[in-house]
């Protein structure tokens, strides 16, 4: 058994039976962007552009650090970006340019 096998063998989302904290019985209403992100997932699934299982696999592929540090919908949108690149639907520079264009709609912060 090599030192790192366990990292490959157990997906970051496979948490059944692992040690965990008490449950925080909390909920939050979705941010508008989170709701749009969920709607995006459904529309991508309807059009068979990204199916639900691909989304799950895409989230797993982000790796343990991102899975643990990004919130639920943050993981989804990062996974969608990667899957769209893999399918040659978008390129990384397409998305980077568009993100800059979206950001430019707000005044830059003054420091």
């Amino acid at each position: 058994m090599t030192a790192t096998e366990h990292l490959v063998k157990r997906l970051p989302n496979d948490v059944g039976g692992t040690p965990a904290d008490p449950i925080q019985i909390a909920d939050h209403p979705l941010e508008p962007w989170e709701k749009r992100c969920h709607a995006l997932a459904d529309v991508l699934d309807f059009h068979k552009i990204i199916n639900t299982e691909e989304k799950r696999r895409g989230v797993e592929s982000l790796g343990t650090e991102l899975v643990n540090k990004l919130s639920y919908y943050e993981r989804w949108i990062a996974a969608f970006a990667n899957i769209l690149f893999q399918k040659a639907i978008l390129s990384p520079s397409d998305l980077a340019r568009k993100m800059q264009e979206v950001e430019a709609r707000w005044p830059t912060r003054e420091k």
Binding site: V8, K9, R10, L11, G16, G17, R56
Partner: peptide
């Protein structure tokens, strides 16, 4: 079985 990549049978089972 120990798939590399996507699986849907949790390790605990």
């Amino acid at each position: 079985r120990w798939p590399v990549g996507h699986y849907r049978v949790p390790i605990y089972l």
